[in-house]
Amino acid sequence: MMIDHLDHLVLTTVDEAACLRFYVDVLGMTLERFGEGRKALTFGQQKINVHVKGHEIEPKAHTPVPGALDLCFIASRPLDDVMATLKAKAVAIEQGPVARTGAMGPIRSIYLRDPDLNLIEISEVLPA
């Protein structure tokens, strides 16, 4: 196999402040500043670089579009705790919890939307 793991991905947003608030204040990611005013959201050993629509860093995707992502994150704590935190922060859960299949086996997931309407799946790993 040629590929070992994902290092980062790029999220394109129309409202950088709202995007950063969601991922930092709601999901608990860490804001990293680097380069010439660039921003990334870090968690675990991964990061999400943030580009503002119309001001993307080159090279970029052929058609960077806010709201086109469908991301699944594995929670660092039980999904019930995640749902309680989201409720306390008035973040609507669109669907779930539901059973799904993740990269490593069975997961239990909820779905919500970020400010750009990207689909965000938050999951806990279930015993195989």
Rank of each mutant, 00 (worst) to 15 (best):
H51G: 00
V52K: 08
V52L: 15
G54Y: 08
G54I: 04
G54W: 02
G54P: 03
E56F: 06
I57N: 09
I57L: 15
E58C: 05
P59M: 11
K60N: 11
K60Q: 11
A61M: 11
H62Q: 10
T63D: 13
P64S: 12
P64Q: 10
P66I: 06
P66C: 05
A68K: 09
D70F: 08
L71F: 12
L71D: 10
I74A: 12
A75V: 01
A75N: 12
S76F: 00
S76W: 01
R77H: 06
P78Q: 09
L79N: 03
L79M: 02
L79C: 08
L79V: 05
D81I: 00
M83G: 00
L86Q: 02
L86W: 04
K87H: 14
A88L: 05
A88P: 03
K89C: 07
K89F: 03
A90Y: 09
E94R: 13
Q95K: 15
G96R: 02
G96P: 05
G96C: 06
V98H: 07
V98L: 12
V98A: 11
A99P: 04
A99G: 12
A99N: 14
R100V: 07
R100W: 14
G102L: 04
M104L: 14
P106S: 06
I107F: 08
I107D: 06
R108T: 04
S109W: 09
I110F: 04
I110T: 01
Y111G: 04
L112M: 09
P115W: 11
N118E: 00
N118M: 00
L119W: 09
I120P: 01
E121V: 13
E121K: 11
E121P: 02
I122N: 10
I122F: 11
I122E: 06
E124Q: 15
V125P: 00
V125L: 07
V125Q: 09
V125T: 06
L126C: 06
L126N: 10
